[in-house]
C-alpha cells in the first residue's frame, strides 16, 4: 500500500500514525513539535535538555499511539505525555522532597502589567525559578492540577506543594520588579 502524503483531518493522520506510516509521523512531528518543545521548555531549564525530552516524548507518542482511545483531545493526550516525560527527566536530577515548608504566608503577587507578555519573557522568568518552584508552578497554574495531585505526582506532601507555589509566585513577583520586563512594570 502506498502511504498518503496528505491527510484530510487529524483523525486520518492519527490512523496513519497508528499504522506507523513514516510520512504521517513526520507530519505529526512538524505540526506539534514546536508546541511540545514549548511545554518542555517550561519545565526543563536547558534548551538542549528540553529538546531531548521533547524527542523522547514524541517517540513515546508515536510508538504508543494505539493506546490513544480517540475520545478526548489528541493534543491534550500528547501534552500529558510530554509533562510526564519532563517530570521523569527532572526526577533523575532533582529531589523534590528537599524543600522548605512554610505556612500561613500571604503574598501579594499582583504587578502592574500590560495584558500582554512575550514568550521569551515567560521563559526568562521560569528559567530563574528553582526546579521545585518551577515544577509546582507549572503543574498548578498552567496544567491545572490540585495540590493533592501534585503531592502524589512528585511524591511530596501537600503542604510542600502549597509552599513551593507561594514561594514561586513571590520569586516571580520579585523578578518582574527587578528586571522591569517589557510590558511589565
Amino acid at each position: 500500500m502506498i502511504p498518503k502524503t496528505t491527510y484530510v483531518n487529524e483523525k486520518e493522520l492519527i490512523r496513519a500514525c497508528q499504522r506507523q506510516e513514516r510520512k504521517a509521523q513526520k507530519l505529526l512531528f512538524d505540526r506539534y513539535s514546536a508546541k511540545m518543545l514549548g511545554i518542555c521548555r517550561r519545565y526543563v531549564k536547558r534548551q538542549e535538555d528540553a529538546e531531548d525530552v521533547m524527542i523522547e516524548g514524541m517517540y513515546k507518542i508515536m510508538t504508543k499511539i494505539n493506546q490513544y482511545s480517540g475520545s478526548g483531545s489528541f493534543e491534550g493526550w500528547m501534552r500529558r505525555i510530554m509533562v510526564n516525560e519532563a517530570l521523569m527527566f527532572l526526577r533523575k536530577a532533582h529531589n523534590f522532597k528537599v524543600s522548605v515548608e512554610i505556612s500561613n504566608i500571604q503574598i501579594h503577587s499582583k504587578v502592574t502589567v500590560e495584558d500582554d507578555l512575550a514568550a521569551e519573557d515567560i521563559i526568562k522568568l521560569l528559567e530563574k525559578l528553582p526546579t521545585g518552584y518551577r515544577t509546582v508552578f507549572n503543574l498548578y497554574v498552567i496544567e491545572g492540577y490540585k495540590h493533592r495531585e501534585i503531592a502524589e505526582i512528585l511524591d511530596i506532601s501537600i503542604n510542600t506543594s502549597k509552599s513551593q507555589l507561594i514561594l514561586a509566585k513571590k520569586r516571580l513577583q520579585a523578578l518582574v520588579e527587578q528586571n522591569r520586563m517589557p510590558g511589565v512594570g
Binding site: K110, V111, L117, A118, I142, L172, V184
Partner: peptide
C-alpha cells in the same frame, strides 16, 4: 494583574522550533 494569571494567559505563545 496576578503574575500567575498573566503567565497562564500568555503561555500559548510558547512555541519553539526544534
Amino acid at each position: 494583574k496576578d503574575i500567575s494569571d498573566l503567565i497562564k494567559a500568555n503561555v500559548y505563545k510558547l512555541e519553539e522550533r526544534p
